[in-house]
Simulated assay, not measured.
Amino acid sequence: MAGGNLTTVMEFILLGFSNLPNFQGFLSCVFLIIYMSILIGNGLIILLTKVSRVLHTPMYFFLGNFSFLEICYTSVTLPNMLTNLWTQGRNISFLACAIQLCFLLILGGTECLLLAVMAYDHYIAICKPLYYPAIMNHKVCVQLVVGSWTTGIPVMIGQTYQIFSLSFCDSNELNHVFCDIPPLLKLACSDTFVIELSVYVVAVLFVIIPFILIIRSYVKIIITIFKLPSHAGKYKAFSTCSSHLIVVVLFFGSAITTYLRPKSNNSGGTEKMLSLFYAIVTPLINPMIYSLRNKDVIYALKKLLSK
């Protein structure tokens, strides 16, 4: 006892879908199929970008890294969700919850930065095609990817430490499917103003600023595309960018809504749906968006299957 009615929380209970007791088996099958689809779809893109010479370009180098990131991002949450649904055991230790949140934040920040890097790559390819080989050489591509993966690590570790330094009391039940910032702040019995302010600052740095840079890149891309003389050139340029733009809208839309909404507007059901969207649905549809809308990927896949 920390004093009075304050108790040191040693574990949390993830309520998840406990309000749907008759659908636990159905949900576990659905999430298992989704997880396997994510692994297979994104794994196939990684394989294609490695073995196909047609895809040995900076754009597909970034896409391969992005697919690997999606596998990691989903693996932080989905296996634990599946275990909870199968065993009906919803307990997660204090340390495990902190580790899960830390990896979720690091990978989420990496995804925002990598999407911005991919937008920059499209911008150089369309707006400055003559300088593209010189600007986007292999060394620069590797540096951009490494920077995307590592920039957020110290910030997100610090953010996680701040959140788990709070005092939790009264209840240890998280009305969520995995450990995330909004439900954790709801359980805190100490003042969360400083933590919430830091969450907004980090969200601006790793979500809003990359999103603005992406929008800025696409404004210039669209202006350049409309100046192209041939309809075929315009169509090819739009086709190249449209897949990435769809992913940007889906991921950033759900992430911004989750982390930058006023606290009073956050309801458990809405939080669950939004978190499932950016943590599971987006990684699921990414391979379909990039493969079905990309002739190079389809060609590489047909060539691989023919062998």
Rank of each mutant, 00 (worst) to 15 (best):
C29E: 07
Y120L: 14
S148Y: 04
F211D: 02
T150Q: 01
Y218T: 04
M273L: 14
N137P: 14
N294C: 15
S254R: 03
K272D: 06
N294W: 06
V219N: 07
L15E: 14
V194M: 10
L85I: 11
I223K: 15
S230F: 12
S75Q: 09
T151R: 09
S242N: 06
T77N: 09
S190H: 03
Y123G: 00
T240K: 13
I13R: 15
H244S: 10
Y120P: 00
T257L: 15
H231W: 09
F61W: 04
P133N: 05
R90F: 06
E70P: 00
L113I: 10
G4T: 11
A98W: 06
P210Q: 09
N84D: 10
E271I: 15
P183W: 04
P21A: 05
K234N: 06
P133R: 03
I99R: 06
L304P: 05
G16C: 08
P287W: 07
E196D: 13
A96G: 03
T57L: 12
V281L: 15
S306P: 01
K227L: 10
I215L: 15
F193G: 02
L107G: 02
I34R: 00
T282W: 05
L301F: 15
L130M: 12
G269M: 10
G4E: 13
Y259R: 03
K295Y: 10
K220D: 15
F31A: 02
C169E: 11
G25K: 08
I225Q: 10
P229F: 04
T7N: 07
E173F: 08
I280Q: 05
I135H: 03
L276P: 00
R90A: 11
A188E: 07
S148N: 04
Q159C: 07
L144T: 00
D180Y: 08
F226I: 08
N172C: 11
N5F: 09
G268H: 13
E70L: 14
G41T: 07
A116N: 05
I209G: 03
A2S: 05
V54F: 01
P183I: 08
P154K: 05
L301S: 13
P182Q: 11
Y60H: 14
Y123V: 00
D296Y: 12
A96R: 10
N137Q: 11
G43H: 08
P229N: 05
L101M: 13
F168A: 07
I285Q: 01
L301T: 11
F61N: 05
I212P: 00
P283I: 10
I225L: 12
Y60R: 04
P283F: 10
L15V: 06
T240L: 15
M81W: 09
L105R: 03
I214V: 13
M10W: 02
V117C: 07
Q24T: 12
